[in-house]
Design a protein around this nucleic acid. Structure first.
Length: 481
RNA sequence: GGGUCGGUAGCUCAAUCGGUAGAGCAGUGGCCUUUUAAGCCAUUGGUUCCGGGUUCGAGUCCCGGCCGGCCUACCA
């Protein structure tokens, strides 16, 4: 047998085992301790510990003749084991030597500390409980090919510790988000992903067809309109964490399906949402990552502690364009100015869209420290209330952290007539669809409420220092291979 | 969608001007009973993404395609 085809070599080992009467795929093992629990059971001042039974995938195998060191990986991490021929027997050891990297085994034995101080299981018994027929990626560099990382995420998770930890962190983050809302007496709900009208955001939806009713459906692009129906229904504190789908491009910050949090609370407004959003992120960061200072690869750390900066949209714009009368300027002057600022703007855009280009292309990525951008022009959002003392803006904030917008919040519009007008205006010019059923609900009366949305993936990007949204999504959307 | 860079052994990467495709890890055989990317000796392994073209000769140059990274566009 040569080593040319590693799959064939492993298959042959399996065949031989079965011929000898042992089938690893029919075997199991009782795991009494995870790697982390086991290593915690040997006190500092002791050399020998109790017996444990661990299990996992072999990720390192150092054979030194009549003894072998190996490392196994389980859901908590790695633990080393030391297997000696004179302790498990000659025949067993001969079979043991044929194990491969990637195989799953169970090991039972007492804990001890090696010469170099590593807590290790001294094997008295081992059992192969699943055979890997394909080799693992390179042990030192791990897997670096992005495509393979995304298509075969399981390999990435086996060999790349950073990735493993990031997805564990993501899970903790989502759990803490739920804890936060439960703690404030919010009801967690689930609303339809299949919708005949997908509203609540200005994005193109995915379309699909429902055979039983012979009608077209869209996948939801936001949670908003159904959650507000629940406000009408009397569930006056609700939240949902769920997938939304937008039929748009891919980028470092966009995946066509992503996870949104939306929360609505009656008898408050966007100011209340400001406190809620800040407390949420602070509590989540504190509990799931253990701190409010987020180091970055370059530049100052992001400081999440205390109160956060508030800035009016208009003030930020005026600061960048350098003139107080920006909003009174004719369109030509605005276009000229944007050119001198170095950004390309489509001359067909409306005035407010030109201004918003300045915000998105120049200002947004400079907002590294958490900043609530408030008093946003009313044209940009049809679902919020007009600010009382400034009829050109709405009661809303856009929270920017790490140069990205990650959470908008509104004083939700509950006047059905005003809402209908705003919708009709948008339906005329954009991809938004008119949701009559939602407007009907509003006519039954919706309590005053604040609402917020938060892109979970983008929160995870910055809390876990990911470079790309795809590094925060286990199986990101790819072209079929 | 556009621009740009890339695709070589299971994995990580080399290959000068167009001149016999290599290394490390992994694998295989051997030595080795406290290793830490274990070490030492030997050794197997290639549709160089796919299809055309130029050439005496193509991983390398040209054309087309597939897949991906980055930038950009789209994007509440």
């Amino acid at each position: 047998m040569d080593g040319s085809d590693q799959v064939a070599v492993r298959q042959a080992k399996l065949d031989q085992m079965r011929e000898a009467g042992y089938d690893p795929f029919r075997a199991n093992w009782e795991q009494t301790h995870t790697s982390v629990e086991a290593t915690g059971m040997l006190p500092e001042d002791q050399e020998e510990g109790p017996e444990v039974s661990v299990a996992g995938r072999i990720v390192a195998f150092r054979l030194m003749g009549k003894a072998t060191f190996l490392k196994i990986l389980d859901r908590k991490g790695k633990i080393q084991s030391y297997v000696r021929r004179d302790e498990i027997g000659e025949e067993e050891y001969a079979a043991f030597k044929k194990l491969d990297l990637g195989d799953f085994i169970g090991i039972r034995g007492p804990l001890f500390r090696t010469k170099t101080g590593e807590i290790t299981v001294r094997a008295k018994e081992y059992r192969l409980v699943s055979k890997a027929l394909r080799p693992l990626p390179e042990k030192w560099h791990g897997l670096t090919d992005n495509e393979q990382i995304y298509r075969q995420r399981y390999l990435d998770l086996i060999v790349n510790e950073e990735s493993r930890e990031r997805f564990q962190a993501r899970s903790r983050i989502i759990r803490e988000i739920r804890e936060f809302f439960w703690g404030r007496d919010f009801l967690e709900v689930e609303t339809p992903m299949l919708q005949s009208v997908s509203g609540g955001a200005a994005a193109r939806p995915f379309r699909t067809h429902f055979n039983a009713l012979d009608c077209d459906f869209s996948l939801r692009i936001a949670l908003e309109l159904h959650l507000k129906r629940l406000l009408v229904g009397g569930f006056d504190r609700v939240f949902e964490v769920g997938r939304v789908f937008r039929n748009e491009g891919l980028s470092r910050r966009h995946n066509p399906e992503f996870t949104m949090l939306e929360a609505y609370q009656a008898y408050t407004d966007y100011r209340g949402m400001m406190e809620l959003t800040r407390s949420l992120i602070q509590q989540v960061a504190e509990r799931s990552l253990g701190g409010l200072q987020m180091e970055r690869s370059e530049g100052d750390a992001i400081d999440l502690s205390g109160e956060w900066r508030e800035a009016k949209y208009k003030d930020l714009i005026i600061e960048v364009v350098g003139r107080d009368d920006w909003f009174e300027l004719p369109k030509e002057a605005k276009l000229e100015k944007t050119k001198s600022l170095g950004i390309e703007v489509d001359p067909l855009l409306e005035d407010f869209e030109i201004t918003n280009d300045i915000f998105e292309k120049i200002i947004e990525h400079t907002l590294i420290q958490p900043t609530f951008v408030t008093h946003i022009p009313k044209e940009l959002c049809p679902l919020a209330k007009i600010t009382e003392d400034d009829l050109t803006t709405i009661d809303v904030f856009e929270l920017c952290i790490n140069g990205q917008e990650i959470a908008p919040a509104y004083s939700e519009q509950n006047d059905p007539a005003v809402q209908r007008d705003a919708f009709i205006k948008q339906v005329g010019e954009e991809t938004q669809e008119l949701d009559d059923d939602f407007l009907l609900a509003l006519e039954h009366g919706m309590p005053p409420a604040g609402g917020m949305g938060l892109g979970i993936d983008r929160l995870v990007i910055f809390l876990t220092k990911a470079a790309n949204i795809r590094d925060t999504i286990l199986f990101p959307t790819l072209r079929p291979s």
